[in-house]
Amino acid sequence: MKILVCISNVPDTTTKVTFTDNNTKFNTAGVQFIINPYDELALTRALEITEKQGGTVTAINVGLADAEPSIRKTLAIGANDAVRINAEPQDAYFVAEQIAAYAKSEQFDLILTGRESIDYNGGLVGGLLAEMLGIPSVNVITSIEIENGVATMERDIDGGKEKVSCKLPLVASAQKELTEPRIPNMRGIMAARTKPLKVVEVTGDLKTSATVGFELPAAKGGVKLIPADQAELLIDLLHNEAKVI
């Protein structure tokens, strides 16, 4: 079983988001970058599968050299090897295209991504990538088991769950419940230093979008406090003033 796990390098969830260059660039000053939490679940599940059934897990990232601490961490957690495609991850289309170009030469049985990256919130790479490779895709999976070349998964649907079965190869994207993330141990961290991290140059140059600017949400006008002993007034205000109920 050969599994490819797609990794995004994203700002920690506690980051206070600000922008520079006239609101055209994300301000990375003082920001801690981490493996995208959903990708970390995908990686952990991939390791659980190969530990039980044999096989290898490759982590892949489209990013510049500053993403390498997160990529090294995937090796420390247990990935066998890693690939970095040396480019700024412009948008979901570009990232999917780069990963597809690499995956075509390697014949992976299973490709896992996170449900979305917590910075760009696209949630599109899995579907784009699967289409580019001509294989099925199942998004927002909360479980996956593999037996005799067939994956059985549960995915979130609006208001419920769907059980899906699919012959390998396929692309699936990880939703929260998939598994619990692993903290790398000292042995893993030592081993990661000597595991292969291959840097690959970009293929193709189809540009489909460009981010032209950012904006922070407007600050709230201030909270209207309701005295605790008149809490029932809340319902009246929501009905007559805010008109939402």
């Binding site: 289309y93 949630g123 599109l124 784009l128 998004n139 979130d156 609006d158 189809l206 489909t208």
Partner: peptide, 23 residues
């Protein structure tokens, strides 16, 4: 921008070689 909407959107964008924005 629902779970199933996005599942379709990415594949459609790749088929049509279309730029895509979600959310």
């Amino acid at each position: 921008n629902t779970y199933s909407g996005k599942a379709v959107a990415g594949r459609v964008a790749a088929k049509l070689k279309a730029g895509i924005a979600s959310g």
